[in-house]
């Protein structure tokens, strides 16, 4: 058990972060904080992909000039590319989400979900 935690702590951390993000989305009444929860949730996944790509003593995956470099330990570049793409997607989502929150605030004058429910129930 301790050995697993010592060698795989990155995965454990990822699920802790994932849980915190999920909890923020569910339990927080403030819409902006909900969106921060979504971001945390996504960031946990990015860190997971980065830790998947880690290679012990691995270098940055750049092919050296030497035509016969022999055996090289390199970090896998593919997950990094995936994370870059996913970050871009995440930014777009955050932007759309914030735009929606601005509109909700302009219409109802509140950012809190419980107040929003009351306002909508009164209408």
């Amino acid at each position: 058990m301790i050995e697993i935690l010592a060698s795989r702590y990155a995965y454990a951390l990822m699920f802790v972060l994932l849980g915190i993000g999920m909890y923020m989305m569910i339990a927080n009444e403030n819409l902006v904080k909900k969106l921060i929860g979504v971001n945390l949730f996504q960031t946990a996944i990015f860190l997971f992909f980065v830790s998947v790509a880690y290679v012990q003593d691995g270098k940055a995956p750049i092919v050296p000039d030497d035509p016969a470099p022999g055996e090289l330990a390199m970090a896998s570049p593919l997950p990094h590319v995936i994370v870059l793409t996913a970050i871009v997607v995440g930014i777009a989502l955050t932007a759309v989400g914030l735009a929606l929150i601005v509109r909700i605030h302009a219409e109802y004058g509140t950012l809190r979900e419980d107040t929003l429910r009351e306002v909508r129930a009164d209408e």
């Binding site: 969106l35 979504v38 989502l93 989400g97 929606l100 929150i101 509109r103 909700i104 909508r120």
Partner: peptide, 11 residues
Amino acid sequence: ESAVAALKYLI
């Protein structure tokens, strides 16, 4: 209402 529905769907 549509903005609230869209935000719910977004999350």
